[in-house]
Amino acid sequence: METKSFPGTVDSLDSIREYAGQVANEVGLSKKPTYALKLAVDEIATNIILYGFERVGMEGTIEMSSEVVDGKLMLVIEDAAAPFDPLARELPNEEDLTQTLEEREIGGLGIFLTINGVDEFRYEFKDGKNRNIFVMNLE
């Protein structure tokens, strides 16, 4: 499927989710996995935009591509911001997620939802770019 490039700003989030939705549609994902993929993509793209670009005053783009390999959809987001591995930070655990909302720390929920929503999530830094890879099993 074709590669698309989006300006690295929050104004692009609608189109970024739409791309994920179209790809999910083309490979026949059902409603719930499609939503989970859109959510995962939104969360990771948001981190890239807010922390990779905006916080350091950098202008950049978000490149999206996708392919089907061995019965799995691989959706890839690439950016040229500073290396950032979403998996390096500590995720909320069972205890955190059952805490009352008064006491709860809100950090890390986006990445938790990403990992929880896709069948596999991978990160690599390659050729000077962050590559976030979202894998969805096809039926």
């Binding site: 989710r17 939503y35 859109k38 959510l39 939104d42 969360e43 948001t46 809100i106 929920l109 986006g110 939802l113």
Partner: peptide, 8 residues
Amino acid sequence: FMSSAGLR
């Protein structure tokens, strides 16, 4: 659609 930004 609601992301973690909405949960916040």
